[in-house]
Nucleic acid binder design. Structure first.
Lengths: 127, 127
DNA sequence: GAAACTGTATTAGTCATATAATACAGTTGT
DNA sequence: ACAACTGTATTATATGACTAATACAGTTTC
């Protein structure tokens, strides 16, 4: 079932470039399964207007997603998600490991034990 | 026992501003206990030379740490760490919660269960 | 007191991010 | 065919992070 990638629950935060936030949102959606092979992406103009950012910013995110082989664009036509199991698995592993390792490094540098780190995450999970 | 804050195991990564990385390193050292009240900080020039960055970048980090009340500087003299239990506790809670929440949000957006998230962190902890 | 260190300040320049305005090329739907 | 959408490209501008060079003020040490 082909649908349009929903950007409803995407909100811009500060701290990292917007084009990276858009890329991450798409990748996380792919891992979650809410974005599937063949799905249609909102046009650059539509999404930039929806997010309140410049079309060039969306274009940059889309272009880099295309360079990673996750979407395809052709002048004049809509852009579509291009996925297979291998890509999905790769992204899932990449993102999970990256996030986990970042957290672990921070916690270790603070001298926090594995047990306390896990317990804090467990406790804060529902919120 | 007063010593000089050690920046030996600090390495610059790309992705976030260097002055923020320096601030984070100091804060994590405070939480870990390797940085204590009264400790002496390397001078702006010495640290910038050690890290291979511009003195202004170190100055920005130090100035913001001073604005947070974690260090004190006086023209002509060295800069020192100024801590008490309340500050340490506040920083510890702030950092732990920030890191945990960031990880949780990412994992949730990927549709990863709490159990799998915890298990991944547990597995990657030793590395 | 003088040298050698401290912190602080200013000015100029580069680079990445993002905005703004505009233009052109190709498609889709009627 | 034509209108209304697509993607793509260019030029100009602004801001934050960072570099570079330099200057000045205050301290510590001998």
């Amino acid at each position: 079932m082909v649908s349009t990638v929903p950007f409803d629950d995407f909100h811009i935060e500060d701290g990292s470039p917007v084009y990276l936030q858009i890329m991450l949102f798409v990748k996380r959606g792919i891992v979650a399964g809410s974005i599937q092979n063949g799905d249609e992406l909102p046009s650059r103009r539509v999404l930039s207007s929806l997010l309140g950012v410049n079309p060039n910013t969306v274009q940059k995110a889309y272009r880099m997603l295309e360079e990673e082989g996750l979407i395809q664009s052709h002048t004049g036509a809509k852009s579509y998600v291009v996925l297979d199991q291998a890509k999905k698995y790769r992204i899932r592993a990449e993102l999970m490991e990256a996030h986990a390792k970042a957290t672990i490094r921070a916690m270790r540098q603070m001298g926090i034990s594995k047990e306390e780190a896990l317990s804090v995450i467990d406790r804060l999970w529902e919120s």
